[in-house]
Design a protein around this nucleic acid. Structure first.
Lengths: 192, 192
DNA sequence: AAGTTTATTGACTCGTCAATCAACAAAAAC
DNA sequence: GTTTTTGTTGATTGACGAGTCAATAAACTT
């Protein structure tokens, strides 16, 4: 029963199912058949649209990264001043879209994927550089030479909070995660 | 050609090979045959001693965690005062044993394993609690009520630095990783 | 020397899974 | 109304990998 114009819907359904499965099962060892089943189609169709399992994963990773990028952009658009923009970036990192349990779980697994799959590594590098340069842009006017180190620290801290969220679900909620990082930011910008 | 008393040597060789393989390949998808080959024996022997692949991984994880614990204990023994002890804990986290590339890579993968394997999760929880209580012990006398948050932050920051080390090998060396975390510690203890 | 325990492996079983293919169905184009 | 394009799947293939087993051998025991 073919409905025309199904391709984009199918692709999106597969990406969504992939993120959910990887996040829920906490592992990249999910089969194409499982993903396809969850997305309501046969595994053959998944292969038809994506060609290979790796491509499905990469598409899912792109989706996660652009979700995050969108949250950052949105938060930045509504922010005022260097201080406000920095706080916006941090808050966006713990936005309701990106900080759901399955999404964080998927993040963690994609980190691991990035160790082996060159394309995944590339994607991750792009977004990390973007974050870094976003931070630097507003950090430099505030603290000059120390900006580099603080940007590094903020990046690592955000990653670390993500890990913990993936590892102890429920143990750290959005708000307290954000507050933790914001306090670090405040201290580094204000302090001395 | 059986040498008697081979068991402990074989076990150790398998654990070492596992950490190397997981760290190098950046994935838990290493076969028992690969590990056994690297350790200089047949896959059948690996199964003979460990029973299952999961048990091999758990043994490797235990080895990593006790290596880390030993470094912390060693550093603590030689430290003076609350401040000194805290610095020792942080430095131990980036000690030469634990912060080698393959070891960090393996860490990251075991984090992922901990999402699915209950025993792995348990192991990790034990060591995280130990770190947390070590930190609290010396943080509380210095900063009182704020100790909890700072301990949380230090833990997350250490994890985050680990991730980055696994993801961008060479991009962050032992020394600068330690300095980054030590600066955070200093600021939180000193400041205000 | 016969028997027992420990070490060791090659060959095999059994399951799983990514990827392919042939076939079928409905809409669009002509 | 026939052809073409798009959507869809069940069945199959082919590879690979965890775990088992039977067999072999050296060392220890009595």
């Amino acid at each position: 029963m073919p409905k025309l114009g199904a391709e984009p819907i199918r692709r999106a359904a597969l990406v969504k199912a992939t993120i959910e499965m990887v996040g829920d099962s906490g592992s990249l060892d999910v089969t194409v058949a499982q993903i396809a089943r969850r997305a309501g189609m046969s595994s053959a169709l998944a292969h038809h649209y994506f060609g290979s399992k790796e491509q499905i994963f990469l598409a899912a990773m792109r989706a996660i990264l652009s979700l995050y990028a969108a949250e950052v952009r949105g938060a930045l658009a509504a922010a005022e001043g260097h201080r406000g923009r920095l706080r916006a970036i941090v808050r966006a990192s713990f936005g309701s879209g990106s900080f759901r349990r399955e999404v964080v779980g998927a993040w963690l697994n994609f980190y691991v994927l990035a160790q082996t799959a060159p394309e995944a590594r590339r994607l991750l590098a792009v977004y990390q550089r973007r974050l870094h340069s976003n931070l630097m842009h507003d950090l430099r006017p505030l603290i000059g030479a120390r900006a580099e180190r603080v940007a590094q620290g903020l990046g690592a801290l955000i990653d670390g909070v993500y890990i913990r969220a993936a590892l102890m679900p429920g143990h750290s909620d959005r708000r307290s995660a954000a507050v933790l990082v914001l306090e670090y930011l405040e201290r580094e910008v204000e302090g001395r």
